[in-house]
Amino acid sequence: MAYLNPEATTPDLDEAAAAVGLQELVERLGGYETGIPPGGGDLSQGERQLITLARAYLSPAPVIVLDEATSHLDPATEARAENALATRSGTLIVIAHRITSAERAHQVLLLDGPVPLLGTHETLQTRSETYADLVGHWHT
């Protein structure tokens, strides 16, 4: 987990694991020192994503870009991880197709056609028929 922050302490690792919901997996694997073979071994796609999200949480990077980084997570775990990363200092950019990610965002950039639209989830629903349709299709 300390791949992007080799100076991370055990309390730092504990905080990151708790923040993204990784504690159960850490315990099941036998702790932070457990080696994971290349390709993730027997871990599911979602478990591998959680480890990567914990690494991002620990990273000192001032900007984090998540590109479909929660695609293998259930909605509750996705929300927990995105909210945890949003509490870090710095900038979080989330690229996602799930409307739930847009609903949590401070600003949403809609790229559809020649003119990009920037606004909150609420304002884009009134300013963009395309966005309103996406929201409507997601929730029905």
Rank of each mutant, 00 (worst) to 15 (best):
P116I: 07
Y3T: 12
S89A: 13
A76C: 06
E129P: 00
M1C: 11
M1K: 14
L53K: 09
L92H: 05
E82L: 15
P75D: 07
A102W: 13
S101H: 03
I36V: 12
G119L: 02
V94L: 11
I93N: 11
G21L: 05
P60L: 08
A2H: 14
G21I: 06
L13A: 07
I95T: 11
T100I: 01
G90T: 01
L25S: 01
A19Q: 13
V65L: 15
M1I: 03
S59N: 06
P75M: 02
A79Q: 15
E7W: 03
A105D: 09
A17H: 05
D112S: 05
A84Q: 10
M1R: 14
N5H: 13
Y3N: 14
T34V: 00
Q49L: 09
D112F: 06
L25I: 00
R28E: 12
D67K: 01
Y131L: 05
A18Y: 03
E7Y: 05
P60Y: 10
A105V: 00
I93F: 11
D67P: 06
V26C: 03
V63F: 03
T140P: 12
A18S: 15
E68I: 06
R28G: 03
I64R: 12
L66I: 03
Q49G: 09
Q125K: 13
T34G: 01
Y32D: 10
I36W: 01
G41P: 06
A81Y: 02
